[in-house]
Design a protein around this nucleic acid. Structure first.
Length: 260
DNA sequence: ATGGTTGGTAGCCAA
């Protein structure tokens, strides 16, 4: 079972790429972020025509997440607990229920960017990560397969950037969100890509600006974190780099994990 | 130090 995550940077502008990638890579489950459209504007018809089910938490123009699955999507939850007036659409989870296999809870999460540091945006990022940590802690008590996939907007380690020094004043590389990532990991979650490859040079995002892609000036900020019950089934994980060479690409590429 | 690009919505913001 292949579970993938992709910050698509506008599903309407990227529909051709999305359909191509779904046919090409054929993930069982795809977690999308930054769909940038309201629920009713999500291109469900075209995606369902490829044999997928769809669950969406949209928002007009900004953010927005979705789950796409070849298997039934049950028990969908939208938003994290402790919302306290938070109206940004950044989290959806569902129980992926294959006919003859163990169900897996999969979350599609779009962590706040948090720039610039020293503003309420950065504080919002930290508060959001705390809410995710609280949710994950509760969810892990079930001792069941769980995948928290998405655009974490966190560069976990220096090897996750081509030029770490370029990011020292950026919210994606600050000590606080990196510590939050470590705390969440330390709950017992496994970084799927890192688990199968402990080297550097693995990137999931290249800025549109200044020829970042051509220079391979990338960062690894899209992650799949696996509960122990999911990690036990991890076969392989990877990054669909080639998608960045397509016409009108997202600035992120899909990341995936294959579970037995 | 600055500028560089894209998407979405509507005269700039978020990334």
């Amino acid at each position: 079972m292949r579970i993938a995550t992709w910050n698509i940077n506008g599903v309407k502008a990227r529909l051709h790429n999305l359909l191509h990638w779904l046919k090409d890579s054929s993930p069982d489950v795809a977690c999308l972020q930054e769909i940038k459209c309201a629920d009713e504007a999500f291109p469900a018809f075209e995606i369902e025509a490829l044999g997928y089910n769809v669950a969406v938490l949209g928002q007009k123009g900004l953010h927005g997440v979705a789950l796409i699955s070849k298997h039934p999507i049950e028990d969908v939850t939208r938003g994290l607990p402790q919302a306290d007036g938070d109206e940004q659409s950044r989290f959806i989870s569902g129980l992926i229920a294959p006919k003859d296999a163990t169900p897996i809870r999969v979350a599609s999460a779009y962590m706040p960017n948090g720039n610039p540091i020293g503003t309420e945006k950065f504080e919002y990022k930290l508060a959001w990560l705390q809410r995710l940590e609280d949710w994950a802690r509760e969810e892990l008590l079930r001792e069941e397969p769980l995948v928290i996939a998405g655009d974490y907007n966190i560069i976990p380690e220096p090897i996750d950037a081509k030029y770490p020094g370029n990011w020292v004043t950026d919210a994606l590389y600050q000590p606080e969100p990196r510590a939050a990532f470590r705390r969440i990991s330390a709950l017992g979650l496994t970084d799927a890509v890192r688990a199968v490859n402990d080297g550097g040079g693995l990137y999931t995002f290249w800025d549109y600006q200044a020829g970042a892609w051509q220079k391979n000036n990338g960062i690894r900020i899209d992650h799949l974190l696996l509960s122990p019950e999911a990690a036990d089934r991890l076969l392989l994980a990877g990054i669909d780099r080639h998608v960045r060479t397509w016409d009108k690409p997202s600035d992120h590429v899909p990341v995936w994990a294959d579970l037995a």
